[in-house]
Amino acid sequence: MRADQAPVDALVELPECCLQHAINEQPALALRLRELGFRPGVRVQIGRKVAGGARLVTVGTARYAVDAATLRQLEVIPVAA
């Protein structure tokens, strides 16, 4: 599943291939996501939608507004709560 398809407040995990699409299409974006903590094995909470189609995403204790185009490039695995 892609991150933009996750339901609100879903807890998801980033698999090994989570950034593969971003690495292939936009290496600079993939690097920035890794700097922000988007790495394989990390659990992320996908929050509500905000202006412009972005979603609030919580990684650890940090919250980011991530645009829809970037979310479409992140593969995620739902985690049972």
Score class of each variant (00 low, 15 high):
A6M: 15
P7Y: 13
V8A: 13
D9T: 03
L11D: 05
L11H: 08
L11E: 12
V12R: 02
E13G: 07
L14D: 10
P15T: 05
P15H: 11
E16N: 10
E16K: 13
L19M: 14
Q20M: 10
A22K: 06
N24C: 05
N24P: 00
E25R: 13
Q26R: 15
P27G: 06
P27K: 03
A28S: 11
L29I: 02
A30K: 09
A30S: 10
L31V: 10
L33I: 06
R34N: 09
E35Y: 11
L36K: 10
G37R: 07
F38R: 10
F38K: 10
R39M: 14
P40W: 03
P40L: 07
G41N: 09
R43S: 03
R43L: 08
R43K: 13
V44L: 11
G47Q: 06
R48A: 10
R48I: 06
K49V: 01
A51H: 04
G53M: 02
A54I: 08
V57W: 05
V57P: 00
V57F: 12
T58N: 05
V59N: 02
G60F: 10
G60W: 06
T61H: 11
T61Q: 12
T61E: 14
T61V: 12
A62D: 01
R63L: 06
R63H: 03
A65H: 04
A65N: 05
V66P: 07
D67M: 12
A68C: 04
A68V: 07
A68F: 07
A69H: 13
A69G: 03
L74F: 01
E75Y: 14
